[in-house]
Design a protein around this nucleic acid. Structure first.
Lengths: 244, 244
DNA sequence: CGAGTAGAAGTGGTCAGACCAATTTTTCCA
DNA sequence: TGGAAAAATTGGTCTGACCACTTCTACTCG
């Protein structure tokens, strides 16, 4: 039932199976989880940490690199290693790789998740947005679909959706939804609609969302957001071959 | 407008500001994004990669460690470095750190996201589940709230929710939702309800969800899932001080 | 001839020590 | 007393070595 070729029970050899670097990662992660290390706190130097945890500096650096990648640590050249603020945005930065390397069927799944999150977020935003946020959103909307190059349209598109989810006041929601859409994917969507001569439809999608927000109408906002994601989803399914 | 103390334009010095390890990470990530490296493909050895990208093996290893942490590469001791299958589950494993280190207000945000995702997922499951999946879900449900130790109840609770989101057939959705609930948090919820003598309420929440799925009733499933997450959310807000 | 095994080669994991580059702190002069 | 130069601190990179695990090879034995 248990692992083979393990004689009886093994006291210290058990921990010896797990690589030292991995062990260090888990030790530091545990110290953060149980509050021994607080957000923003400075850690000992790499050399001291290596000595305390009983491994070489190279391996210690690999552990720090892993935790840096996860967004829990931050190394500042010449100034030390620190625990990040542990904000959702810090910890969910890694999330964007999904949108970056996803292809084919996975992209469809990602859009289906967005079709769940964005309508809910947009409805929340309709209920919570203040005049100032809406005014700024209007200026972003104006940049979408103009004839000043697709590059700026894509940037404005990203800003538009990001601004809306941030209106919910839920930074975790904003970080997750932000990680689900990559600039490169949005660029392909706009290019595709441009070649098909239906850029106006995408532009109108955003206008409908904006008007629903202005009207503080959660139901209309939800519907408009759903239709927008659905539009992209349908386009993707029709061009799935190009995303192999 | 641009960065200060940069004389005119700088050709090669621009790339020299970016640490070599970071550059290697981006190069390999780009090769995966553009299809040069395919899922499951084997990479050259660390020594060869280091030589090709023009950096030392130590720095190359740190780059590989970062990409391993992100779930795009996988190093097998003695056997080489490989691109993972790039499944959503591979890329979203890092997601769990959020639930692990989150505390206080962030936990509330996480639950609010779950209150969006879980009802939608449960409604989808109600429409798509087959008899076999439902039968297995029933056996898991029986283990929830028994008097055989909270440990098994927590494990069954996790399995229950995971099984439901997997019924949607959307592995990305399953991976995201899975990362939003940690075993330790669920354990505290059950302990809290146990001490307050309201374990039955949690148990009934799960039964209601199960009955809605059996009835293939998406609306009822959505409502039951919403109420369940709300129950946990309310409990958390009442005990937020314990999660500082 | 084939199966199994022992050895060799290949490859990731760890360690040691050195030097470079950015930051911070200290020192000391104007 | 203010500020600039110098020293100390600390992360970033490189080199080269050795260990542990896997895979391949070739040999031996039935």
């Amino acid at each position: 039932m248990s692992s083979p070729d393990v004689p009886p029970a093994d006291p210290a050899a058990e921990a010896d199976r797990v690589p030292v670097t991995q062990r260090a990662i888990e030790q530091i992660k545990a110290m953060i989880a149980d509050g021994t290390l607080r957000p923003g706190q400075r850690l000992p130097t790499e050399r001291e940490l290596a000595a305390e945890l009983g491994l070489s500096r190279s391996s210690m650096r690999e552990a720090i690199r892993a935790l840096t990648t996860l967004g829990v640590l931050e190394a500042r050249h010449g100034a030390g290693v620190y625990v990040t603020a542990l904000r959702p945005a810090d910890l969910l930065e890694t999330f964007s790789v999904l949108a970056e390397v996803a292809r084919g069927e996975t992209l469809v799944e990602v859009l289906q998740v967005r079709r769940i999150l964005e309508p809910a977020a947009t409805a929340l935003a309709a209920a919570r947005a203040d005049d100032d946020q809406l005014r700024r959103l209007g200026t972003v909307l104006e940049r979408i679909g103009r004839d000043e190059g697709i590059g700026d349209t894509v940037a404005a598109d990203l800003s538009f959706h990001q601004a809306i989810v941030e209106m919910t006041g839920n930074t975790t929601l904003a970080a997750i939804n932000g990680g689900l859409s990559s600039r490169t994917f949005k660029a392909r969507v706009w290019h595709g609609h441009h070649e098909a001569g239906v850029v106006a439809r995408l532009r109108e999608d955003h206008e409908r969302i904006y008007r629903a927000l202005l009207a503080r109408d959660p139901d209309a906002a939800r519907a408009a957001a759903t239709m927008h994601v659905l539009e992209v989803e349908n386009w993707l399914c029709a061009h799935l071959d190009d995303f192999a």
